[in-house]
């Protein structure tokens, strides 16, 4: 709901901007409006496709089943699941943070959490839009490198955190003393 509000505020600002610019330079502002309508027209079919994909993801992939298999001692399977989970997770990142921290506290590897978060840079529902703007080649190369990058970053993050396990213990104590 809060997000909805920020969108409305933003829209209000843009409308105001148009009004001000119209009074300064009417012709150019009308041209801008025409450009915007052109962009809107191009986006609409893609938007419909994206929302359908989102609905399908919501129907066939249950968030709980993603979280269940991200646990520790998972080896290669854990990495695969972290990467796939990150790719499939939708919505803003901070929605996933409490769940990820919960997994971490129950022994999930830090590296897996890091890989999950980075793999979110691949957004399957938005892939048609990425292809429309940047082409197939870019989209494939980008996706491959992000997944590879997420894995490498997860490994590095795991090593980094292993150097400083005390920090987590302190953080846990902080949390439990507050509760």
């Amino acid at each position: 709901m809060k997000k909805n509000k920020s969108g409305l505020v933003m829209l209000g600002i843009v409308v105001l901007l148009y009004a001000v610019l119209f009074s300064l330079n009417a012709d150019k502002t009308l041209m801008a409006l025409k450009e915007s309508l052109g962009v809107l027209k191009m986006i609409i079919p893609i938007l419909v496709l994206v929302l359908t994909l989102t609905a399908l993801l919501n129907t066939f992939i249950d968030e709980k089943s993603i979280s269940r298999h991200l646990g520790e001692e998972s080896g290669l399977k854990g990495w695969l699941l972290a990467l796939i989970g990150g790719i499939l997770s939708h919505g803003p990142g901070y929605v996933w943070y409490p769940m990820l921290q919960n997994l971490r506290e129950r022994g999930a590897k830090d590296g897996l959490i890091g890989a999950f978060i980075y793999a979110r840079a691949v957004k399957i529902p938005w892939i048609p839009l990425m292809i429309a703007y940047f082409g197939w080649t870019f989209t494939v190369v980008y996706t491959v490198y992000v997944v590879l990058g997420a894995w490498v970053q997860g490994v590095l993050l795991g090593r980094w955190m292993a150097l400083s396990k005390d920090d987590i213990k302190i953080h846990h104590q902080d949390k439990s003393s507050k509760e």
């Binding site: 997000k3 933003m10 829209l11 409006l33 450009e35 915007s36 809107l40």
Partner: peptide, 19 residues
Amino acid sequence: VISPMLLAVIGLVGLFKTF
């Protein structure tokens, strides 16, 4: 939910392209 933000950004893109 996203439509106001979407319209706002598209509006900005139009301004951006022109100005």
